[in-house]
């Protein structure tokens, strides 16, 4: 275990989050069993009152999770000097088998959180809370378990980290007894990935821009958004990172968050994650919006969500194009 403030902060945040999610889960069970909007019983009134507490608690937990994702990555970057062979966050996350799964689950939790928050926001605007069962079902069945597994994996990751420090018992060369961690990622071939990236992202932005024209275009946008996210992440590892670092073999998706590269990573990831989160939130809520009151709200809010998401995807695409255009690296052709 490495004992330092950022790790303590992350473990503390996860612990508080789990306590709150446990409270919310107990409530979710009661709500799913007893929720009757038509009834005026004391039970129903009590449940309705408690939904205010629960949605505040869950909002708090989920907002903390958004911060925790960033903190987790920055901390991985910070710890790199502690491990033989680690040059940046990739090495730190490879230091034991729990690193990358923790990160992936944290990202999943981020998107789940966003979906839940969008759904909660839209549901609160309808007078009869049509999505209340879906919301708490989702919380009980998906969000809370994922959060628990994430917290568990992260704890396992931190507990199994051992800094490779000099120990007096090693009489001879210390570093050679330790296996160096794999400090590098390998990406897909840059050429085809570049084509796929511009194809998928371009199509997504086009569908988003025209989504008010036709329902099928809106559907297309909502389906393409998650695909665009995956393509974008693969593209970051495959070739965007190369252009940022102006180095033909440095595929790290994390180093670009550092000051050396002018924090360009934030310019890429913030729009990308937000855009995907908004589109996912809209898409998933739409799946459950069956009642007429809800459809109208989702239609109206969905237009704004799609508009913002499209703009953010466009910002991301523009940022990538700008990075490639101004980079000194000539990767393709020449």
């Amino acid at each position: 275990m490495i004992f330092q403030p950022a790790i303590i902060a992350l473990v503390l945040a996860d612990f508080l989050g789990l306590v709150f999610l446990a409270m919310a889960s107990v409530f979710a069970v009661r709500l799913l069993r007893h929720w009757q909007p038509a009834s005026g019983s004391a039970m129903q009134l009590g449940l309705e009152r408690r939904t205010y507490l629960m949605s505040t608690l869950v909002t708090f937990v989920l907002l903390t999770q958004l911060g925790a994702l960033l903190l987790f990555v920055l901390n991985a970057e910070r710890m790199a000097p502690l491990f033989v062979g680690a040059m940046c966050a990739v090495g730190t996350l490879n230091a034991n088998p729990f690193g990358f799964p923790s990160l992936n689950l944290r990202m999943a939790l981020f998107f789940l959180a966003a979906i839940w928050l969008v759904m909660n926001h839209l549901d609160n605007r309808a007078s009869d809370y049509p999505l209340v069962r879906v919301k708490y079902g989702l919380l009980l069945m998906v969000v809370a378990p994922v959060a628990a597994v994430t917290a568990g994996l992260q704890l396992a990751y931190f507990l199994n980290l051992e800094a490779d420090v000099i120990t007096s018992c090693c009489g001879t060369l210390f570093s050679s007894d330790r296996d160096a961690v794999a400090g590098d990622l390998t990406g897909l071939a840059p050429g085809p990935t570049l084509v796929a990236f511009y194809g998928v992202l371009g199509l997504t932005v086009a569908a988003g821009a025209l989504s008010r024209r036709a329902r099928w275009l809106r559907g297309l946008f909502l389906v393409l958004a998650p695909a665009a996210f995956v393509t974008a992440i693969l593209a970051v590892v495959s070739f965007i990172s190369l252009y940022v670092y102006e180095h033909p073999h440095h595929h790290c998706p994390f180093c670009m968050l550092q000051a050396e590269y002018g924090f360009v990573g934030y310019g890429l990831y913030v729009p990308l994650f937000l855009a995907t989160a908004l589109a996912l939130g809209h898409g998933v809520t739409r799946l459950f919006a069956r009642t007429p009151s809800m459809t109208a709200i989702v239609d109206e809010a969905g237009r704004r969500l799609d508009g913002t998401a499209t703009a953010l995807f466009a910002v991301f695409l523009a940022a990538v194009t700008w990075l490639i255009a101004t980079s000194n690296l000539i990767l393709l052709g020449g």
Binding site: I2, F3, Q4, P5, I7, I8, P81, L82, F83, V84, A163, D164, V165, I166, G171, T172, L173, F174, S175
Partner: peptide
């Protein structure tokens, strides 16, 4: 002989200071 690498010293210092911070925070 016992060779001591600079990177080992850097790692040891870094984790020592981290540990001190963690201890005080606890």
């Amino acid at each position: 002989t016992r060779p001591i690498l600079r990177s080992e010293m850097q790692r040891t210092y870094a984790s020592l200071f981290d540990w001190r911070q963690g201890l005080v925070l606890t």
